[in-house]
């Protein structure tokens, strides 16, 4: 009789825990799905215009990779940036439009 009572109490607790866990899971799922649907509705009806431009819009030949190595070691990072981390355009001087020069002057004055 005592054994039966103990077994009964244990299984009741077990069911109780399962029911609570299931309820919490259901609530989480409901919040998740509702949030998702609400965000989709907001996106569709209030948020307009996404960036449509890819690299191909402004670059006919795209990226030309010189280095394309997979599975390198984390410690190789320093060597990699030592070799490929130099500014290739450092010594090139360019003519700057007058409007930009004037704006730079204004900024300096402001400072």
């Amino acid at each position: 009789m005592t054994d039966m009572t103990i077994t009964g109490a244990a299984s009741f607790n077990e069911y109780f825990v399962i029911i609570i866990a299931t309820a919490v899971l259901f609530l989480f799922a409901c919040v998740g799905i509702s949030l998702y649907i609400t965000s989709r509705i907001l996106k569709k009806y209030t948020d307009f215009g996404e960036t449509e431009c890819s690299i191909h819009q402004y670059s006919a030949d795209g990226v030309r990779f010189k280095v394309n190595k997979d599975n390198v070691l984390p410690v190789e990072k320093e060597d990699f940036f030592l070799i490929y981390g130099e500014n290739p355009y450092e010594k090139i001087e360019r003519s700057i439009p007058e409007q930009l020069i004037r704006n730079s002057g204004k900024k300096d004055e402001h400072k």
Binding site: D61, F65, D70, V72, F80
Partner: peptide
């Protein structure tokens, strides 16, 4: 994994 990528590109 770690990956190394280096290259250049012309924009117009």
């Amino acid at each position: 994994w770690f990956f190394q990528r280096a290259g250049n590109c012309n924009f117009k």
